[in-house]
Amino acid sequence: MDTSRNALEIMDLTVAYHNKPVLWDVDLSVPEGILLAIVGPNGAGKSTLIKAVLGLVPAAAGQVLVYGKPYPEQRPLVAYVPQRGSVDWDFPTNALDVVMMGLYGKVGWIRRPGKNERKLALDSLHKVSMADFADRQISQLSGGQQQRVFLARALVQDASLYLMDEPFAGVDATTERAIIDLLRELRSAGKTVIVVHHDLQTVTQYFDWMMLLNVRRITSGPVEQVFTEENLHRAYGGKIAFLSSSSSPPAEE
């Protein structure tokens, strides 16, 4: 298979905390232009997978290629949306400034962002309907608004591959709607979006591909092929409520 055409190629990736594997020999091929949900129970290593792709956690083994090359060579092609709770929203700055941070990579060391960056950031806030809040201190934004600021920050990077860590967590219905519209827009622009997702109910509705992860990769592929009772059972074990009627025992690997 010609892997260089894939937006993301993960091969034999293992991430461990000492001798406790968090990700265990994970393979994943993500073709260009899809919306992929990474789904799995708590502690399955979903966020770790994204962080390992970005080099934020060291890999014990394995390799990650972004459009055929290691991530450090492809930084401008990748945008990252961390979990909203990972930053201090009391930090003294406003929404526009946070969005401009997405451009710091392009601006480079020492140089300051200028008028052009301001304009790009404002456009980006506009896309998530947050332009009116550009000057608002970030602690005064609601959770959903904060999440949209984070999305705007990723949008402004104008990347090809977007990695988002639980963008739907704890947001209001309006924001959820806005995010999903945005994801679809990105897809029609030929971008690839990988989202850590928690809500099994909406996976089929929002995404076209999914990966089931529970330390190991259970399976991945188009949603209609992956989203089966048997696969979900393999990922979640007996812990999943709406599958309680299932008669099939958890499959062994």
Binding site: L54, V87, M101, Y104, G105, W109, I110, R112
Partner: peptide, 21 residues
């Protein structure tokens, strides 16, 4: 010189690292 870098790293170290700072 490093106002921008300091701000970014303190606010969001994860993004900073992913952008190469």
């Amino acid at each position: 010189l490093f106002f921008k870098e300091l701000k970014l790293v303190i606010f969001d170290a994860g993004l900073a690292a992913s952008l190469g700072f």
